[in-house]
Write a protein that binds this DNA or RNA. Structure first.
Lengths: 193, 193
DNA sequence: GTCTATATCGCGATAGAC
DNA sequence: GTCTATCGCGATATAGAC
């Protein structure tokens, strides 16, 4: 599964063979096909696994009664930590979405959309309580999610921009600082620092 | 070229055959191979074309003496317009970057990185003149670019979130409003509205 | 430049022994 | 469950007539 995740991320669904995945995982192609009878079954299993982990990192905003600043800081940190710790998973998922979600739209509808709607609800309650400015929460979530995910999906380009071979913890810390600052300044009624 | 762009975006480099591209373009596979002797040559030609158009939309920030607010508004609007008008191009490019830029790192280094560095310079001058807060410009540009590009690359997921079959102009206008607000509130010393 | 024909290979998937 | 063997197909790429 981990081998498949990495290879799908690197070469895309159609760009990698079962032979390559199997040998990378230390099994035979037939052994692989015994557990995953079709290539697409393996692919969906990888995506399910990614989604499981992703949602674990995400549901921070919805399940706390923190004040907006703390909740948003935690949320952004969690999303960036996912990008840092599961870059391949993020990339497989991103590739699938870029392709138009041909093999996973049903699960996105079933699991991702409700999670984001729950986050929107939390934000709306903050607005009602006068803690946050009224904003288009759907697009706010899109921006938040795009900004944090970029550090996994587009790492190769960010590396070229930063002039280094790979992203380090410091880069994620810097990114977190910028994103947190942008979000807090735009949503809080009385930005702190 | 347009057919190849759309198909590479939809299925990835390894997920589409020359036969499919050729028939979609109304030529024979051999006719295609006459002009692009290798598949990877066609692919790179597509990426070059995307990059040409992309840079046209991007160099707005660097080539004007506008005040920061006007320049940033124009820049964000331009990036979103690219996402709106060239979604397939954006997706091909994103796929290549997600894969680690195996076929295009040299051109990104040569053309994209300098463009972004120029934008950084513009921002630094604004800071020196006291017009903007000091920020990590590299990450600011990453966030800006990720947020705007998401409306092309991840359109399928955003559609699921918004509950509609495809993005309309109104959605891009809403996104622009949110992104502009976020950016201006965080970089300007005296945000207007 | 465009066509027919074809070489050569690797792909996903299956069959059946053990 | 794992192995060897193999099917059938479609892929990139080339050769050569016209």
């Amino acid at each position: 599964m981990e081998a498949a995740k990495r290879l799908f991320a690197q070469h895309g669904y159609g760009g990698v063979s079962l032979d390559t995945i199997a040998s990378e995982a230390g099994v035979s192609k037939q052994g692989l096909l015994y557990y995953f009878p079709k290539k697409v079954v393996l692919y969906r299993a990888v995506l399910q696994n990614v989604l499981d982990v992703w949602l674990d990192y995400m549901d921070v905003l919805g399940h706390r009664d923190d004040d907006p600043e703390t909740a948003l800081r935690t949320y952004i940190a969690g999303k960036l930590r996912f990008s840092r710790e599961h870059p391949h998973g993020s990339r497989v998922f991103a590739s699938e979405v870029i392709a138009g979600a041909p093999h996973f739209a049903d699960e996105i509808e079933r699991r991702v959309v409700p999670a984001l709607h729950a986050d929107e609800q939390v934000y709306r309650r903050w607005v009602e309580r006068g803690l946050c400015r009224p904003m288009d929460t759907r697009h706010l979530m899109v921006v938040l999610w795009a900004a944090t995910q970029a550090y996994a999906d587009f790492a190769s380009q960010i590396c070229l921009i930063l002039g280094k071979p790979e992203l380090e913890q410091q880069d994620f810390d810097d990114a977190e600082k910028v994103i947190v600052e942008m979000v807090l300044r735009s949503v809080l009624r009385n930005p702190g620092d």
